[in-house]
Amino acid sequence: MEFSQEIKREFDQIVARYPQGRQKSGLLPILHRVQAEYGWLSTEAMNAVAEYLNLNPIEVYEVATFYTMFHLEPVGKYVLEVCRTGPCCLVGAETLLQYLQRKLNIGIGETTPDGLFTLKTVECLASCGTGPVLQIGPEYLYHEHLTEQKLDQLIDRLRSES
């Protein structure tokens, strides 16, 4: 697997932020960039990142499996990540999460058959005052003060946009 020249230029810019020999520091930003490009992190992509950064591939796997934002399997076009932590639950997150499961007819961690939506839960998004909240990658925009009605509109809009 080969990254495009354009992406490699971005990698170069990322690595330039760190002192000589500390290119491993670029691993997280580079994995984010790769995921934004391909939607998820395949083994081939991680191996290519390892090669670019001059690391053993295992060093990349260790990191990618530690952080929850990295998808190690293909996901839907829109990854809906609903906050499930205490403060959001005080204002109805659990109910909404159930609603969303029914609406999309999938469980948590699953993807709709049309490949459009993957439903996930996340831990506290630092949006406790504006909960319930979900975010949608790869832009990771927040949708706050969620209600069933707002979810309906959001899902409809995303469906019509694609």
């Binding site: 083994t43 053993n56 591939p57 295992i58 060093e59 796997y61 260790e62 499996t65 530690f66």
Partner: peptide
């Protein structure tokens, strides 16, 4: 020198593995 195994995942589901 060339390590092919490591600690994968996190918390109490961390495991020693080679990933592939």
């Amino acid at each position: 020198g060339q390590r092919v195994h490591g600690v994968l995942n996190r918390g109490d589901v961390s495991e020693i593995g080679t990933y592939i």
